[in-house]
């Protein structure tokens, strides 16, 4: 669900190295709203990192995140998104 919402908003640059990988740490609140996002592992290609970041900014808030508080705290308050082209 999170995957889908990010992927739909992710426009990545064409004609780039297929082995790039960016890791972004996300902080969420239980409503699904993104508190903060930061690149914790850069791909080395600024444009690629920024395209991933833009995807998260476009999402703003994840929809449909209804779950028990304990589960939310356990997994979703803070998690990592790993972006790869293929």
């Amino acid at each position: 669900m999170i995957q889908r919402q990010v992927r739909e908003n992710w426009k990545r640059p064409k004609n780039i190295n297929q082995s790039l990988k960016t890791e972004i740490q996300i902080n969420l609140v239980p409503t699904g709203e993104i508190l903060s996002a930061s690149v914790i592992k850069s791909s080395g290609n600024k444009a690629f990192d920024e395209s991933a970041m833009s995807a998260i900014l476009k999402v703003k808030s994840f929809e449909g995140l209804t779950m028990q508080m304990q589960l939310f705290d356990q997994h979703f308050r803070k998690f990592t998104l790993v972006f790869t082209p293929e």
């Binding site: 999170i2 995957q3 990010v6 992927r7 739909e8 992710w10 426009k11 990545r12 640059p13 064409k14 890791e23 395209s51 991933a52 995807a55 356990q74 997994h75 979703f76 803070k78 998690f79 990592t80 998104l81 790993v82 972006f83 790869t84 082209p85 293929e86």
Partner: peptide
């Protein structure tokens, strides 16, 4: 107490994306 290891943090893979002209 219950989640002492940071490495157990959830990782979600986002593959592909839309390879669209900018």
């Amino acid at each position: 107490i219950f989640f002492p290891s940071v490495s157990s943090q959830l990782r979600i893979e986002i593959k592909g994306g839309v390879e669209e002209s900018i």
